[in-house]
Amino acid sequence: MAFDVASFRAGFPSLTSGIAHFDNPGGTQTPAVVGEAIARTLTGPLSQRGAATLSQRNAEEVVAGFRSAIADLLGGVPGGVVHGRSATALTYDFSRTLAKTWSPGDEVVLCELDHDSNVRPWVQAAERAGVTVRWLRLVPETGELDLSSLDVIGPRTRLVALTAASNLLGTRPPVATVAARAHDVGALVYVDAVHHTAHAAPDITAMGADLVVCSPYKFFGPHCGALVADPALLETLRPDKLVPSTDVVPERFELGTLPYELLAGATAAVDFLASWSPVEANRRERLVAAAADIADHELRLRTRIEAGLADLGDRLTLHSQAAERTSTLFVTLRDRLPVEAYEHLAKQDVLVPAGTFYAYETFRALGLPVDSGLRIGLAAYNDDADVDRLLEGLADFLT
Results as ranks from 00 to 15, higher is better:
L227Y: 01
E144D: 14
P216W: 09
K218M: 12
D240H: 11
A180C: 07
S166T: 01
F220P: 04
P174W: 01
A232S: 11
A198N: 13
V212S: 05
H183M: 15
K241I: 12
S166E: 05
A179M: 03
A226V: 10
L169C: 14
G225M: 06
D146M: 05
L138S: 06
L237W: 05
D184M: 12
R156N: 15
Y190P: 06
T236Q: 11
T142A: 11
I204D: 00
S215I: 01
T163A: 15
R238P: 00
V248H: 00
S166C: 06
P231M: 07
K218H: 15
V194C: 04
C214D: 04
A179L: 04
L233D: 02
L138N: 07
L237R: 02
L227V: 06
F220E: 10
P216Y: 03
D146S: 08
A206K: 11
P244W: 08
A232E: 06
D192H: 09
V194Y: 01
T171W: 02
P239D: 03
D210P: 06
A198M: 01
T197I: 07
R158N: 07
T142G: 09
L169W: 11
R158D: 04
G170K: 13
V191T: 13
H195A: 12
L227C: 08
L234I: 05
G225V: 09
A187C: 05
H196A: 09
V152C: 06
L147P: 01
H183K: 15
L150F: 08
